[in-house]
């Protein structure tokens, strides 16, 4: 029997959960609504996101921190995108149809030769499907297994997104380099 037993054990945690709710529900609503364009669905997404937060409560840091805010936005966006996909409301980036001529072993070092501002610009053009897992892995340092639990995705899917996200970025930057060069 698979039972999730990540419970919020002490008073501090319980207050923290309520504080998270009071602090971020509007931000989460904004994130969900911008994807779903429907008040009812967005509310469902925020609720489901909070359920997921409860399941991953150990990973939530200080309530008033940019990291926590980003973490909640990522969870909400993931829930909302899944709902949108289910309801046919979103155009999901077709991962399989895009073939890139970049090697699979792209690493963070491959970005060192590119201009910082251009990397930022290209990252911002990348679908959230990729940026969210990249952020959790590269910036926050979560393992593939942890991201898989947060995003409720298979570990292979997470690995694929991490790899493809880097490849798409390098591909864009390289092509741009040739055009501009």
């Amino acid at each position: 029997m698979i039972i999730y037993l990540s419970l919020l054990d002490d008073q501090e945690d319980r207050s923290k959960f309520t504080l998270l709710y009071n602090t971020y529900r509007h931000t989460m609503m904004h994130t969900a609504y911008s994807i779903l364009n429907d008040q009812g669905l967005a509310e469902d997404a925020v609720h489901d996101a909070f359920v997921r937060v409860a399941k991953n409560f150990g990973k939530v840091g200080a309530v008033n921190s940019p990291q926590t805010r980003a973490f909640l936005v990522i969870i909400t966006r993931n829930v909302a995108l899944t709902m949108a996909k289910r309801n046919g409301r979103a155009l999901i980036f077709d991962e399989e149809s895009t073939i890139y001529a970049i090697a699979d072993n792209t690493t963070d070092k491959d970005f060192e030769n590119f201009d910082f501002d251009r990397i930022v610009q290209v990252i911002r053009q990348l679908p959230a499907t990729y940026t969210d897992v990249l952020y959790l892995n590269v910036v926050e340092g979560y393992s593939v297994k942890e991201i898989s639990a947060i995003m409720e995705l298979g570990t292979e899917a997470v690995k694929k997104r991490l790899q493809r996200g880097r490849k798409i970025l390098i591909d864009k930057l390289t092509r741009e380099g040739i055009v501009n060069g």
Binding site: D108, F111, E112, F114, F116, I119, V120, Y135, V139
Partner: peptide
């Protein structure tokens, strides 16, 4: 890394 800073 530059990539990490850019993502952040």
């Amino acid at each position: 890394s530059k990539f990490r800073r850019a993502l952040n």
